[in-house]
Amino acid sequence: MELEIFTQFRLVFGIILVILALFLILSLLPKGRDSIVTFFSVLAISITHLVIGTALLVVENAFLEDFTLDGDSLTLYMFIGIVVLAILNPIVYKLRNKTRRRSTYSYK
């Protein structure tokens, strides 16, 4: 008896990966004065998408157990990518957009 593979959540994992990859690209750009992307927004997106991805993986595993289906290895790799990007995005943003101290001299 061959088990069916459950792939219905693959699209959602892919969308989460694309959003996190987009924020990684935006984190690599230097921050301007009128920047929409802030550290708080990068951190909030990373945390919420990591929580959503984790909850989705738990729900998928419940489906797999209840309906005796086989898991999808690509979905697992996508979840690992979500974890890596969710951790990497705030770190990259902080490293790329360090506040540089300006030394000011008073010539009085």
Rank of each mutant, 00 (worst) to 15 (best):
A62E: 14
L43H: 12
I16Y: 01
V51E: 10
Y107R: 08
S46C: 03
I19N: 08
F63T: 14
K98D: 01
L85H: 06
I82A: 02
G53C: 02
D70T: 11
I47T: 05
L64T: 08
I36S: 05
Y77N: 12
L17V: 09
L26V: 03
Y107V: 07
V18L: 07
Q8T: 13
T48V: 10
V83W: 06
T7D: 13
A86Q: 08
F63C: 15
T75G: 03
I82P: 00
Y105T: 10
I47L: 10
N97K: 12
A21W: 04
F23K: 02
P90K: 09
D72A: 03
Y93F: 15
F6V: 01
V92S: 05
G14L: 10
E65W: 08
P30F: 06
L20A: 01
A44K: 07
F6P: 01
L20Q: 07
L24Y: 10
L56N: 12
L56T: 13
F40T: 04
S35C: 04
Y107N: 10
H49T: 14
Y105K: 06
M1W: 11
G53N: 09
L88E: 09
T38A: 07
S46D: 03
A55Q: 15
D72S: 04
G71K: 14
I52Y: 13
L56D: 09
I87M: 06
M1I: 12
F39N: 11
L88C: 03
T7V: 10
I82V: 04
V51T: 14
T54R: 10
A21C: 08
H49L: 15
L22Q: 13
I82F: 03
K31P: 02
V92G: 01
M78W: 11
